[in-house]
Design a protein around this nucleic acid. Structure first.
Lengths: 242, 242
DNA sequence: TAGATCTTTTAGAGCCTCTAAGGAAACATA
DNA sequence: TATGTTTCCTTAGAGGCTCTAAAAGATCTA
């Protein structure tokens, strides 16, 4: 009947996989990370527990897949924000991208928190072994930022430090090699410094490490962006409301 | 026999409590956060599982107690480093304190990671409710840093921004009130900015969010310290080896 | 239509948290 | 010293979890 009868099961399988991931995400957002268990997810989609092991080899695998989904979505959000300012200045594009990151993070706190504080710290080792989708997704995510810095540098180099620590220089060289990146080591260092400040601030916010003092981190983030603009020799422009 | 016979059981109880906490820590460092279960801890000290519930009302309670222990130890490490430079300059004292923080964090990565990424994110809500020992310990920890900035400010004010965001100003006023702190709002803001950069960097390091580029974050931390010194108008001095 | 393959189910081992009920020790008091 | 109370620790067990094994049902291939 169908043009590709052999593909029917494949399609079904794909659909089930998607349903599982969605159910896992639903549990995460409604009941917290601890509620994302194999059994609970299976129950959610009307399946008995062990059946789910035909789709994911283990709970950790499920966690990794869901994490990759989040990273993809976040990456897409960044790219969308970037492309919305395709006609604007490079500075506007970068600021929009950075703002989109916090926007996604605060709109999806459970998901963002899950990315770096997945239930089991065993994920730390899982993150190390390269080649996994989870890993690739993390790389793609970082690259959205780095590629823009690269572009920036190509059009208008920003000031860089001259006296880089030898150890740092060595590490950056190794990283740069894996990156296929045209940025000089010094510029890459500035880029990573910016990244650390932004992403680190978000980490702290989402992990509730700032609520002892700040209930609204938005202005602090903007302030950090102002700093970044200065570092990258760009014109800072406040966000357009809405 | 004993001068205070009624205190004997109390002493025993205290000893058992300490033993439990130590066993929990041992499991954390040797087998990871997921291995710190009520049953496993009880087994470790030769006790049957449910017996432990006479000492801690729940697994969460045990987690909170252990977290408080870690924060205490970290706080003491900071204070020790500070007091070791009692005769030095305020700048040296602050730098030593900050370096002690990373030193403790990297010497005890499991413990430091546990502090802000405890197994169950339910701790996030547990951290909110004030008055708990865990909460007090967190406060004491932050205060070691803030008090030094306070002292610094008293002796030699550092430059502060004048155009603080109104929302930030309001939040800082509220925080300052709970603090019993002599720092003007603007100076408190600078202090928190410094804190966020340092502590945020450590968070990322311990959560393995930097290993994609850096295998040794030490120099990056030193660089951040140099930045802090500049912000606080202090003389940066590199660490003495050893 | 018969066989191979994929999907799902139930059963169950071995963990986990936490409650309930009872025994044993240590204390306080008459 | 004898008795009662408090504290500690035990076993039993409910209900949940991850994950394996075996078997049944559904679907595709030949």
């Amino acid at each position: 009947m169908a043009a590709h009868p052999a593909r029917r099961r494949e399609r079904l399988r794909e659909a089930t996989l998607a349903e599982i991931r969605e159910a896992a995400r639903g549990l995460l957002t409604t009941k917290g990370a601890a509620a994302v268990t194999v059994n609970a997810v299976a129950r959610e989609i009307g399946m008995s527990g062990p059946a789910l092991y035909h789709y994911f080899a283990s709970h950790d695998d499920l966690v990794a897949a869901v994490t990759a989904d989040f990273l993809h979505e976040l990456t897409t959000a960044l790219e969308t924000a970037r492309d919305a300012h395709a006609t604007g200045s490079a500075a506007d594009r970068l600021l929009a991208t950075c703002r989109a990151m916090r926007h996604w993070a605060t709109a999806h706190p459970a998901e963002f928190g899950w990315i770096f504080a997945s239930p089991i710290p065993a994920t730390a080792s899982a993150r190390r072994r390269p080649g996994t989708p989870r890993n690739q997704a993390g790389r793609d995510f970082e690259l959205v930022f780095l590629r823009q810095i690269e572009e920036l540098w190509a059009h208008r180099p920003f000031p860089v430090p001259e006296d880089l620590d030898p150890s740092v220089r060595e590490q950056l060289r190794a990283y740069s090699a894996t990156l296929g990146c045209d940025l000089p080591i010094e510029a890459l260092h500035v880029a990573l410094t910016c990244w650390i400040r932004l992403y680190g601030l978000l980490c702290m916010e989402v992990l509730n490490q700032l609520d002892f003092a700040y209930s609204d981190v938005g202005p602090i983030y903007e302030e950090t962006l102002r700093d970044l603009a200065k570092m990258l020799d760009l014109e800072y422009r406040p966000p357009v409301p809405g």
